[in-house]
Every structure is written in structure tokens, then in C-alpha cells.
Amino acid sequence: MADRTLSRPFQLHLPGGRVLHGAQFPSGRAFVDGSEDEQEFPVYGISLGAVLERFPGVVALWPDDLARLDDPKRCACCSVDERCSGCGRCSAVCSGCG
């Protein structure tokens, strides 16, 4: 039977508000895309951790995390009920995570 595992999309929220899009493949490898005019993209890695090392201070958000962003009282990192502290890492990170 064929493997039915799908790749998982994610977003990287960089300090300063920039958002990059990527995917993690069933093998564990990851890919992040940038704009066409950026020479450092795309970025590939043998794991998501290897890719994240290229982006200090980044917050990785999965589809479930993005759904929580619709609730402004929920932290996207840890699900604590609290308003954003304005830490600048992303639009919905509580003071405990920031």
C-alpha cells in the first residue's frame, strides 16, 4: 500500500514581521521559499531544525497554530489565554513566550 502521508505546510514569522512559507516532507526534510529576487532562497534542509538555524528569532507556525491566530486571546506558541505582549516576533505571542 502506498504511503498516504502528506507534506505539512508552515509559515516562518521572522522578527520585523516578514512571513516566509515552507513545507515539511514526510521524510522530515524541509523547504522554505522566498521571493524571486532573493539569492538565498529557496532554503532546503535535512530537517526543519536545520532550516530554522538559518533564521534566528523565527517563530514557526503550523496550520493548527494559524487557526488559533483567529482568537486574539490565544498565544500561537503555547495556547496561553493572554493578549499579545507586542514582542514583535509575530502577531500573537504571549509575554511568557516573547
Rank of each mutant, 00 (worst) to 15 (best):
1 M>R: 08
1 M>G: 15
2 A>T: 14
3 D>W: 06
3 D>L: 12
3 D>A: 10
4 R>T: 09
7 S>L: 07
8 R>D: 02
8 R>V: 14
9 P>D: 15
10 F>G: 06
10 F>Y: 14
12 L>K: 01
13 H>K: 09
15 P>V: 09
16 G>W: 07
19 V>N: 01
20 L>C: 03
20 L>K: 02
20 L>W: 01
21 H>I: 01
22 G>D: 03
24 Q>T: 11
25 F>C: 00
26 P>F: 04
29 R>S: 15
30 A>P: 12
31 F>T: 03
33 D>F: 03
34 G>Y: 02
35 S>G: 12
35 S>L: 10
35 S>R: 12
36 E>A: 15
37 D>S: 13
39 Q>Y: 03
40 E>Y: 02
42 P>D: 02
43 V>Q: 04
44 Y>M: 10
45 G>T: 07
45 G>H: 07
45 G>C: 05
46 I>L: 10
48 L>S: 01
49 G>T: 14
49 G>V: 08
53 E>W: 01
53 E>V: 12
55 F>E: 07
57 G>C: 09
58 V>F: 03
58 V>C: 11
59 V>S: 02
60 A>T: 05
61 L>K: 11
64 D>G: 05
64 D>Q: 15
65 D>L: 05
65 D>F: 04
66 L>Q: 15
67 A>H: 14
68 R>M: 06
68 R>N: 05
72 P>H: 11
75 C>M: 07
79 S>C: 03
80 V>T: 15
80 V>Y: 03
80 V>D: 06
81 D>E: 13
83 R>Y: 04
84 C>Y: 01
85 S>N: 13
85 S>P: 00
86 G>S: 11
86 G>Q: 09
87 C>P: 15
87 C>N: 13
88 G>Q: 06
89 R>C: 11
89 R>S: 09
91 S>D: 07
92 A>W: 02
92 A>C: 07
93 V>F: 00
94 C>N: 14
94 C>K: 11
95 S>A: 14
96 G>H: 14
98 G>S: 13
